[in-house]
């Protein structure tokens, strides 16, 4: 279902094929497939992050076109779409992780609590301490489990003393649902854990800094179903406290964990809405093609 080798010609071929069959099955359409402006309401009442007209370029190539999207408090926003649609690129704009890629350039406005994060005066370090990120492949540091979690608070100076730090480590591991599994081997290297445990360790590591927003880039794609289920439960719990934006390949996962869903297609944000609506009654034909499995 992945389209890693999507070249312009065969994507066109597939699209036209899709057009024909979709037209046959659903009758007349109000929105054409060529319509690339966002359908649905991308704003929320009490936004944490607001994005307006965000473009991302890699060198001369525009990877994201004029995306508008809000992320509200205590909600999980899922971003779905075929590979190469720009959802991960967009996610990485939200804590300026794209800064590490030399050719990458971001324009437009992204505000966190009303503050433009691409403002020249903004330092990425405090920004990232507020907007944490969990990656596709678990990437624990080659340190002990304890050190993995304690490292963030330590560099930021969040703990007054050793006891404080111990407490932060313990609560973070508890919140990540890992405490009972690792409490007896905190000094063992984090790389020795199973894939699912490693990913939860990475989540604990992110929580330990007490961010306000957590970005998750396909956090379960490298995990087995049981580990995935645990992480999904965890995401649901974390929502009580944090805003979460999650990129996922799995529509079922998006349906299970998110309140709102955004569908990306070739660099455009095609449709945003309540998760339930998107999955049961999509407006844009491209969204429908994707969620019904005709595409991607």
């Amino acid at each position: 279902m992945l389209m890693n080798d999507m070249t312009p010609d065969n994507s066109l071929a597939r699209e036209s094929g899709v057009t024909a069959s979709a037209a046959a099955s659903t009758g007349p359409m109000r929105i054409s497939r060529e319509h690339h402006e966002t359908v649905g309401d991308y704003t929320v009442a009490d936004p944490r992050i607001t994005c307006r007209n965000v473009d991302v370029y890699y060198g001369d190539k525009r990877a994201i076109h004029a995306v508008n999207l809000d992320i509200g408090r205590n909600e999980v926003v899922a971003m779905i779409g075929p590979s190469g649609c720009g959802k991960s690129t967009f996610l990485r704009c939200l804590n300026r992780m794209n800064d590490t890629i030399e050719s990458c350039r971001v324009t437009g406005e992204i505000e966190l609590d009303g503050q433009d994060i691409y403002d020249k005066k903004i330092d990425v370090v405090p920004l990232r301490s507020q907007v944490g990120m969990v990656f596709q492949k678990p990437n624990p540091f080659p340190k002990s489990i304890y050190e993995n979690v304690a490292w963030g608070p330590r560099i930021h100076g969040l703990a007054q003393n050793k006891a404080d730090l111990n407490e932060i480590v313990e609560t973070s591991l508890q919140k990540a649902g890992l405490w009972s599994e690792v409490k007896d081997r905190l000094e063992k290297p984090g790389t020795g854990l199973s894939g699912g445990q490693q990913q939860r360790l990475c989540i604990a590591r992110t929580i330990a800094v007490s961010p306000e927003v957590i970005l998750m880039d396909e956090p379960c794609s490298a995990l087995d179903p049981i580990a995935t289920a645990k992480i999904e439960d965890l995401i649901d719990e974390l929502r009580q406290q944090y805003s979460i934006a999650i990129v996922t390949h799995s529509m079922q996962q998006a349906a299970r964990v998110s309140q709102r869903t955004a569908y990306f297609h070739m660099g455009d944000l095609i449709e945003v809405g309540e998760t339930a609506t998107i999955f049961t009654n999509p407006v844009h034909p491209l969204t429908e093609d994707y969620i019904t499995g005709r595409f991607g």
């Binding site: 370090v125 405090p126 301490s129 507020q130 930021h156 100076g157 969040l158 800094v209 007490s210 961010p211 306000e212």
Partner: peptide, 8 residues
Amino acid sequence: RLRTIDIV
């Protein structure tokens, strides 16, 4: 949380 950003 407030403390975190202030400390940072």
